[in-house]
Design a protein around this nucleic acid. Sequence first.
DNA 1: CGGTGGGTTGAGGTATTTCAAGGCTCGTGG
DNA 2: CCACGAGCCTTGAAATACCTCAACCCACCG
Lengths: 223, 223
Amino acid sequence: MFVNLNAGPSNRSRFLGELGSLSQTEIVLSEFKYRRGAEIFGEAEPAEYVYQVIDGAARSYKLLSDGRRQIGAFHLAGDIFGLENGGVHRFTAEAIVDTTMRLVKRVSLTHVAESDTAVARDLLNMTAINLRHAEDHMLLLGRKTSLERVAAFLLEMDHRLTAAGVMALPMCRRDIADYLGLTLETVSRALSVLEDKGILGFLGQTQRQIVLLDRPKLAELDL
Amino acid sequence: MFVNLNAGPSNRSRFLGELGSLSQTEIVLSEFKYRRGAEIFGEAEPAEYVYQVIDGAARSYKLLSDGRRQIGAFHLAGDIFGLENGGVHRFTAEAIVDTTMRLVKRVSLTHVAESDTAVARDLLNMTAINLRHAEDHMLLLGRKTSLERVAAFLLEMDHRLTAAGVMALPMCRRDIADYLGLTLETVSRALSVLEDKGILGFLGQTQRQIVLLDRPKLAELDL
DNA sequence: CGGTGGGTTGAGGTATTTCAAGGCTCGTGG
DNA sequence: CCACGAGCCTTGAAATACCTCAACCCACCG
């Protein structure tokens, strides 16, 4: 379960592409597997590690005291998350399915960034990417209709994880709903509408394998 | 109207406190005044300057094609905004009232950051602060009720601009609504509810001067 | 003074939520 | 091997929070 290996350079370049210059510096890496549903870190916990999804998927969310949940982001293969500028996590993160992660000690990153401007630039870039996503998501949550939200979600997932024309969603309807600020029933209804319109189709009985039949029409719904 | 002065060090230290180390480096600064309602920069425009509010207030927003608007943030005295990591603005910014800004050339910042790690850290910190705000706002927009949203807004403004127990809001109800993902009528009704509950009071007839009479009760509504 | 730009409040409409029922899949244990 | 329960999803019907439309008030200003 806990495979503490110092990854060879070939692995690193393959999985740390997003960190650019990081792949050329010596940083302690280790792999770790999380079972479906397992908590990776909790909100307000000290941020000891930064995580990269090797295989699987994760969700980051905030909770209100009465249980209402807002998922801020999904993390898919290749994504890096859990990077915090202050030393504290602002979300709880959980594995959506059985997931393999690469872990990097956070302090080693910020320490290297002190002298290596390329690493510093990478940290800023990653934070800026997260910021952009959050800004776009505010518009979605504040002003879009349920159909527009689901359309935007599908386009985002299509962009991030479609292989061979099929998008295999790792997350359930409730996760999607909590990401989009809706209920799972509303998400389900919106998907049914899109199916009826011939914009998408389901593969198999699982309802998680989606084929986009009419991307242009979906994009129209996004605005 | 266009006062292009190289500010002296005393001014700088007073107004660039948030940029920490920046106040110790030579950076080209100039002042500029914007009339109420004037556009400061547009979404998707190249980001030439970074802005600091000296006096007044501004709003940053995104528009959908049919005019729906989501305000991502309000910028009050002392705030820095318009900082973009890529070279393009992600929001449109407008002056809410007549406003005086301090402008800094963006490229001069990123250039200095290449060699000065303290400046690089400041840029990362400011981006991280923006990210935190956006993350919290996603929770508000996705999961809070109208009363909770207005309560959270009042607490935020109270924290940022209350002087002598009175909070003088520069923005109108529509701005508040577009910030909170509501309509102006819903905001107005929520404020009336809070007034009826004895949680806040209005000063004068303008409806923009608010006194918080029961901060604890307001905080309860925030969760 | 009339017009314009806020702001409030009421009445009615509607998108989304809530509540409820039922179906399908899959893993587990008899 | 089949029965059974749990998890997930869909769909319908009813409830509701918020929006829309409309009227009105007040302050400000040319």
